[in-house]
Design a protein around this nucleic acid. Structure first.
Lengths: 125, 125
DNA sequence: TCATCATTTCAATAATCGTTCAACCAATGA
DNA sequence: TCATTGGTTGAACGATTATTGAAATGATGA
């Protein structure tokens, strides 16, 4: 798995002493990663942006997105298992909404931050 | 692409009138999604958590993670193209660090939030 | 009960993503 | 200049993931 042999850094370089903390909580890290991963897909994030305008049922979302209900349902499933959205039944319909204010803020902040930040000398490196 | 025919919702249901705003800025949404996607992988997020403790060169990160340098370098590449980390040369070494305080906060908040939130009646549904 | 509408699940396919090794590039010191 | 060390890149492979239509589930009203 590790390709290079032992003698990597016998002599310490100028930066960094070995003050690394033992380990980050792996379980928490996994949950955080799952949450980010759910957000990290344009179609799913668009769905959240849509829901940030208010609750909606699957068929309405499907129409808004011009996609099949199956597709939307699958996307919502991912968002739901990351606890980003909640659902309730209303007659024949299932209404989805952002899980809480925390998620609302997260979505708005992400979009706001991504709306600035370009053009301003951020060309390539 | 869309499987069902026209007559989906001729009669409006009780919820939601068609007050949807025309469209979210697709470019911003794409950048936000790319950022989240970069964060949405445990090994990459662990790397950021490591860098949250201070800058480090690739070989040190590789040793900490017990992985090959190539692997670490590829992960850093993803983080870098999402503007999450910056790099500078120091002699033979390339030192990576979190891009700015904003990213530091993001990482800490994500881990903090993911550290709570379980066990508290959040079993499955 | 049956028929219908809204939604979910299943399974297959396609597309994307992460890891790895080998080759390559960059900086240093002899 | 060459040899060495640190880092990156490219390509191939395996593993995940998203999408889709078809079949199954749930709720409603006749």
């Amino acid at each position: 798995m590790n390709s290079q042999a032992e003698p990597l850094c016998e002599e310490p370089h100028s930066h960094r002493r070995d003050t690394r903390k033992p380990g980050v909580d792996e379980a928490a890290l996994g949950r955080a990663a799952e949450l980010f991963a759910a957000l990290g897909d344009p179609p799913r994030l668009r769905l959240l942006a849509l829901l940030a305008q208010g609750p909606a049922c699957v068929s309405d979302l499907a129409e808004d997105e011009q996609e099949g209900m199956s597709t939307i349902s699958q996307r919502l499933k991912v968002l739901r298992s990351a606890s980003l959205v909640r659902r309730r039944r209303q007659g024949k319909h299932v209404i989805y909404a952002l899980a809480d204010q925390h998620v609302v803020d997260l979505v708005f902040n992400a979009l706001a931050h991504a709306s600035e930040a370009q053009v301003v000398g951020e060309s390539k490196e």
